[in-house]
Design a protein around this nucleic acid. Structure first.
Length: 456
DNA sequence: TGGCAATACTG
DNA sequence: CAGTAT
DNA sequence: GCCA
């Protein structure tokens, strides 16, 4: 499973017969056009290199359902209740019907007589005030509004019932006031976030940050970029500075509760956190600078050492323009906008943070598991060793001063954290190139790639 | 959110 | 014919 | 893709 064996080119498949279509001679008395439409979608899915066979089958089922109809489909309501036809196909059929209707009305306008007599197929004519046409309009509006991220079927229905029928309508204050702040933001940046980010975009952003923050800040592109991915959805940046040195201890005291003893919850240190939020370089320097220089456009969430939000792509250095120009561009929502995150990391934790922020998820989970098996703990701040309580006479020279009052059973001490190499070494692994940090590697490392076939 | 079908090929 | 790959 |  998991598409490990997919063949990029079907022409290489050795024993593939000419594509067998269950319905090679498909005719429908009343809905030929719609059957053709669905056949086209089915074929499209089949062509894709990573085709989903269940999806293909679903189209086949839908085609079958339509074929069995003994009356023409006029709108989605004729078809939505049919087994095997769900929301997406209903919407596609509606779209098709609407287009067909528009086409026919224009040809009617050109010459009523001609279209009346030359059309060999039954012509679908709908009065603009007919119930069926209203239904098509409503469904079309539901689809359009539902295409805004964060607006689902429920909100879409509310909006349509309130008289909102298009994205343009939605942007008027009357309707945009019905949106949550998140929905409003997704509307504002519609068409931006779906757009892929390429490596050059990310490099431009990094260059812009470097120019804006000054030489003492060390800036690294992490996430998908560092794993060598060509196109991705979000830019992740790691920032460090010699003045930012705070390395928090793991908050969960014991790593493996051999016996589920009383769970110790220490909520001390709150005041500290508030204090740090104010003095943190992220809040005092990085974010204000990036904002003033016209990069940051929106803040989605802002935590202690990390920020996530929306930026305006600055483009290559030659096209950065003036600060004023960029600021006004952001104000007018001009330019290209993408999601970005910034993580402020102490230099001491550079290696573990790099590992943590580069990912991917599976790889990083694997590291955590390996650490656990060694009785250690891996997080973005470091690889930690657990030192059992020093009731015995072995107070290690690590850094017991930072043990705080976590528990009486022992304390965490930082084993390795400054470079990826030393962390790999400590975990007993060879260095893994960032481009190899993915599920395939993790699973391949565990056991040689075997087929699932095994006899018994 | 995750399970899902049909069939040609293999031995 | 059943298991498997697609 | 659909559906429970």
């Amino acid at each position: 499973m998991l598409g490990r064996y997919f063949q990029p080119n079907r022409c290489n498949a050795p024993r593939l017969r000419p594509v067998v279509r269950p319905y090679s001679t498909i005719t429908s008395k009343h809905n030929q056009k719609i059957v053709d439409l669905l056949l086209k979608y089915k074929a499209e899915e089949e062509q894709k290199p990573d085709a989903n066979s269940f999806k293909v089958y679903s189209f086949a089922r839908a085609i079958h359902a339509v074929m069995n109809l003994n009356h023409p489909i006029r709108s989605g309501t004729d078809v939505v209740a049919l087994p095997g036809i769900g929301l997406k196909i209903t919407n596609r059929i509606n779209e098709h019907l609407f287009d067909q209707y528009a086409q026919e009305t224009t040809s009617e306008a050109k010459g009523a007589a001609r279209s009346r007599f030359s059309g060999s197929k039954p012509v679908l004519i709908l009065a603009p005030d007919s119930k069926v046409y209203q239904e098509l309009l409503r469904n079309r509006a539901l689809v359009v509004l539902g295409s805004v991220p964060g607006i689902g079927p429920t909100t879409a229905k509310k909006l349509v019932d309130a008289g909102c029928h298009s994205i343009k309508d939605l942007k008027s204050p009357e309707f945009s006031s019905m949106l949550t702040s998140k929905q409003a933001m997704n509307l504002k940046y519609m068409g931006h976030f779906e757009q892929p980010i390429n490596r050059q975009d990310a490099e431009d952003v990094m260059a812009f940050c470097r120019a804006g923050l000054g030489p003492e800040f060390e800036i690294t592109l992490v996430g998908d970029y560092r794993r060598g991915i060509e196109m991705f959805q979000e830019i992740h940046v790691m920032v460090s500075h010699p003045d930012f040195v705070h390395v928090p201890l793991p908050s969960d005291p014991p790593h493996i509760p051999a016996k589920s003893k009383t769970i110790i919850k220490k909520k001390s240190g709150r005041r500290r956190k508030d204090e740090e939020v104010r003095t943190n370089l992220l809040h005092t320097d990085i974010l204000p600078l990036l904002q003033q220089r016209g990069l940051i456009s929106e803040t989605l969430s802002c935590g202690f050492t990390s920020w996530q939000g929306v930026i305006r792509l600055p483009g290559p250095e030659a096209g950065w323009g003036s600060r004023i120009h960029r600021i006004s561009a952001v104000e007018n929502n001009d330019g290209e906008y993408r999601k970005m995150s910034v993580h402020l990391v102490p230099q001491k934790s550079l290696g573990s943070a790099l590992l943590f922020l580069t990912g991917d998820n599976e790889f990083h989970k694997d590291l955590s598991t390996r650490a656990q098996k060694l009785g250690m703990l891996f997080n973005q701040h470091g690889l930690w060793s657990w030192n059992p309580s020093q009731t015995e006479s072995s107070p290690p020279n690590a850094e017991p001063r930072s043990s705080v009052e976590t528990t009486n059973d022992g304390y965490w001490s930082l084993a390795k954290s400054t470079s990826e190499e030393e962390i790999f070494q400590e975990l007993g692994m060879d260095f893994v190139d960032p481009t190899k940090r993915n599920f395939a590697f993790v699973s391949g490392k565990r056991r040689g790639k075997r087929t699932s076939s095994s006899y018994h």
